[in-house]
Design a protein around this nucleic acid. Sequence first.
DNA 1: GTCAATGCAAATCGTTTGCATGAAC
DNA 2: GTTCATGCAAACGATTTGCATTGAC
Lengths: 148, 148
Amino acid sequence: MLSNKTALEDLKKVLKNKGMKYTEQRAVILQILFTLDDHLSAEEVHLVVKQKYPELNIGIATIYRTLNFLEEVELISSISFGKDGKKYEPNKKTHHDHLICVSCGKIVEFYDEDIEVRQESIAKINNFKITDHNMQIYGLCQDCQNKS
Amino acid sequence: MLSNKTALEDLKKVLKNKGMKYTEQRAVILQILFTLDDHLSAEEVHLVVKQKYPELNIGIATIYRTLNFLEEVELISSISFGKDGKKYEPNKKTHHDHLICVSCGKIVEFYDEDIEVRQESIAKINNFKITDHNMQIYGLCQDCQNKS
DNA sequence: GTCAATGCAAATCGTTTGCATGAAC
DNA sequence: GTTCATGCAAACGATTTGCATTGAC
């Protein structure tokens, strides 16, 4: 479990290791993902940065470059939801999957041990060595069921 | 389970119902998905059509329009794989999920009753009414494990 | 002072749309 | 003959790239 603070420390460490530079842009993008702790698209991150740090005048290219980098070094991760495209979240938590409301877009995280175990056996049966997996359940959340 | 033949019949029926026209382009695209019985991207479908029916001189716009239509009327369905984007498959089979080799791109289909049941309970716990779900397991297939 | 990172604009990729032409009915 | 479907090219949205400038070290 990474806190906001340790994530920043990790960023500095990784950058130094790779001979890369610590910049405010990189720090800010990482912090936003960790403090908002939500699932944000690249554009959404851009909006938040512009709003919270207008003096930075950050470009969309930097957003993309930084998100790609942060994902590469595993400080954040991304998932592609059907229509809504790619979204990023901080790597704070252990593995989990997502319930997504098809009406309002709400995202609920869940973890199910039984499913994890079954996935392992399915991979074994098919002679696959798992590197990763993801699962999305789409449906109507309580609120949206009530509305209709 | 739809065979190649019945799929074509269904297509004709749907088109008539909707006051739309039966064209060779639409038939050919449907047939390719049913006979190859693989997971193809729009571009891949385009390539196959051009190769197998060069005289049709089919445009990429028609490919997209037709794939969208066929998916809408549920003769085919699509899934988005991480890096590889959207792929289409014929609606021949019952529901299933996918194992995907991260090295060679091979796709293996599977169905697991336990997982389906668990998904239902997870949705119930979170007050979601499931409309759909999908799950991908990424890993190395047997062949690619041997290579490395 | 050096080298990497940034912002900007142009380029690119996958997909969609507008429109004149051609094919199905 | 009417209407819908097609091919083509232009438009589009999301993402990436090239390049001159700026900022970290």
